[in-house]
Design a protein around this nucleic acid. Structure first.
Length: 139
DNA sequence: GCCAACGTTGGC
DNA sequence: GCCAACGTTGGC
């Protein structure tokens, strides 16, 4: 069981849209970065992830679950790109901002802080627990 | 809206 | 195989 973080610009695809997809979930297509793709290839059904609003949000707003393992990205014919499907699990009681994360010494090694350009990234068990507590939700 | 940081592309 | 040029991302 691994933990991840998915970034999306809320103006393009936000938490409300993700939630509206319900248990069916949504293909996390359109990722054109090898590192992000490799992370998705490593995901298993049932893995959990944070849903982060980039650019105009800058906060983690909820938890999603991988509901379809790596498969070809339907938004391209290029065979290099695979992606998973994710579905919303539950929102945070309270969104956790990037500012909060940066200010927390326990989270200084998070990829979110150190490689801000990676749109699909791993989260450690420890980081998962800390952020769930800050977000006032069950880990 | 700007621009630094990063990743990718392509000429050599 | 190097690296300059280019495109994109995302924090500010």
């Amino acid at each position: 069981m691994a933990y991840w973080l998915f970034k999306s610009e809320p103006d393009v695809w936000g938490w409300d849209q993700q939630t509206a997809k319900g248990a069916v979930g949504e293909e996390w297509g359109g990722v054109r970065n090898y590192q992000a793709r490799n992370n998705m290839r490593a995901m298993k059904n049932g893995d959990l992830g944070f849903f982060y609003h980039s650019r105009s949000g800058l906060e983690i707003v909820g938890i999603v679950e991988v509901c379809a393992e790596s498969h070809p990205d339907s938004t391209t014919d290029d065979p290099r790109w695979d992606c998973v499907d994710i579905r919303a699990v539950r929102p945070f009681g309270k969104a956790v901002t990037l500012e909060q994360i940066k200010a927390d010494a326990r989270l200084k090694d998070m990829v979110l802080v150190n490689n801000s350009r990676l749109s699909v990234q791993p989260v450690t068990d420890k980081e998962w627990k800390i952020i769930c507590a800050l977000g006032e939700t069950q880990p």
